[in-house]
Design a binder for these strands. Structure first.
Lengths: 130, 130
DNA sequence: CAATCCTCTGAACAGATGTTCAGTGGTAAC
DNA sequence: GTTACCACTGAACATCTGTTCAGAGGATTG
């Protein structure tokens, strides 16, 4: 009964990290939540995905592609960026499978990869409108 | 800053000027798509939102909060970060209204702001599982 | 073949991001 | 009151991001 802190337990001892934390945390809560925390790998993958969407230029590119397939130079004109910059950004979008591409003659045509993205878009738009 | 290249001449750039010189880009496509491109402000806001989700530590924090309300020191223990770092990250999540918080005694309890986020989460998880 | 176009790539640089450290404010316990 | 704790903040620093520039790879045209 040393500490009068809490309903059922508590005490120190880091949950499984031997390092830093020796302060009094609510151990029961931490223990309950910790196994449900996203694994580092999944968190990483998901962060990279969101990262691909975290740039206004890339979002503009996607909104353009949501209309129709376009080649790089048209995309550049549509969003008013340099072609090299567009190419760099499309690389990012490709790496997360947000866009597809196919070569036709000298041009490479890009399009949206699937519909998850539009669903996502609407969900976020809704959140931002609140 | 400057409006991009102008090294050679002509080329891109005139998209919304009614010049009849369609030398290099597929003007019709560009004209068709351009008005549908996300505005800079909306793209910016949306990018900031996704940006808040683009860090593995913040995603871990959210996944912890998806389980239950937690105070900062518990969160820090659950995701194994320093409390200061957690505080900084929570600030980002707050700025995008991803979390709520309330003070109770010495602690500040954080929770998920709404259900859009879990919907988003599932949508992305699904996308990544393909 | 040479010339031209479209796209991609790597390097370099400016700006943004995330961590740690040190210090502050507010609340509860002594 | 003093002390201890929890959370927030600002500064400094290392790292990551995105742009531009210069040039290379592929494909078409004359």
């Amino acid at each position: 009964m040393a500490n009068s802190r809490s309903t059922e337990n508590s005490t120190i001892q880091a949950v499984d990290a031997p390092s830093c934390d020796e302060s009094l945390v609510h151990l029961d809560n931490v223990r309950q939540v910790q196994p449900e925390v996203l694994s580092t790998e999944k968190a990483q993958r998901m962060a990279e995905f969101f990262s691909a969407l975290s740039d206004p230029h890339r979002l503009k590119l996607l909104s353009a592609l949501a209309q129709q397939e376009l080649c790089v130079c048209d995309l550049a004109a549509a969003v008013k960026m340099g072609e090299s910059a567009v190419s760099h950004q499309l690389r990012v979008l490709r790496s997360q499978r947000l866009v597809t591409y196919r070569r036709q003659g000298r041009n490479v045509y890009y399009g949206l990869a699937d519909d998850h993205i539009m669903t996502l878009y609407r969900e976020v738009a809704q959140h931002l409108d609140e």
